[in-house]
Design a protein around this nucleic acid. Structure first.
Lengths: 127, 127
DNA sequence: GCTATATGTGCATATGTGTGCACATAAACA
DNA sequence: TGTTTATGTGCACACATATGCACATATAGC
């Protein structure tokens, strides 16, 4: 049987490149820590917030929360403004949604192109 | 000025809960390692593949690739079948797309509800 | 000025994670 | 049967990361 896989097409290669390229490690890593996720939740609920208020209720030290906020800001998930002696943080919702939208757009073709063992079940082909 | 923030509405609270709940740590963590991302890319390009073939071309030891494949499988990003002495791996495209779709669906409201400093710029309110 | 409050950082530490080597197991093959 | 190939795992080690404490800095308020 001839090897006329869809996997050999340029479209397929381009899809693979696009899918990998869009996986921003810094963005994803920022969302993998439970404490950071709690911070995000709190910011969603409270809105614009200073460090001390965010740290209130969380078990970690305030300095730890401060560091996590730095990580979230580097990932562009949050932004901050200095107001007097306080530093106010807030979530950048539009950026987050745009980011995930890009990821989904790049991965979307996988729903049809990456059905597990489809080609293998068809004619027993595996690299 | 009265505190009639949209943040106090039940819809907003529900959105926060849904957004946090959908952030599957295991799923996201699996995609944060560069080596695992390379494995995913290779599986997209080659399709159904055994461990040795995947490890070929990657700098890490084959045993390391084996472990990474275990991590990806636990995250349900890949599936595997034992065929003879080989173990074939493949990407579960439909699952991955479904997962990201759920994430985007839960985060979508943030595009409008979490515009940074919007409320603060409006009337100088911050927790 | 002095004091209190808010924040970030250096440092030490505990825990998690990626890596490679050696080895055991399982299956195909001569 | 003995050998080769494919895979997973125990172990040790290097490195990253999360955490807390102490401290320095900056700003508001007295």
């Amino acid at each position: 049987m001839k090897n006329d896989n869809a996997k050999d097409s340029p479209e397929h290669k381009a899809m693979a490149e696009a899918a990998i390229a869009v996986l921003d490690t810094r963005f994803l890593k920022a969302l993998t820590d439970p404490t950071r996720v709690q911070i995000v939740k709190k910011l969603i609920l409270l809105g614009t917030c200073d460090v001390t208020t965010i740290a209130k209720g969380l078990s970690q030290d305030r300095s730890v929360i401060s560091r996590h906020l730095g990580t979230l800001e580097q990932a562009r998930i949050t932004t901050s403004r200095k107001v007097g002696r306080r530093v106010l943080h807030d979530i950048d919702g539009p950026y987050v949604v745009q980011k995930v939208t890009l990821i989904l757009g790049a991965l979307q073709p996988m729903a049809e192109l990456c059905i597990p063992f489809a080609q293998f079940d068809k004619d027993g082909e595996a690299a």
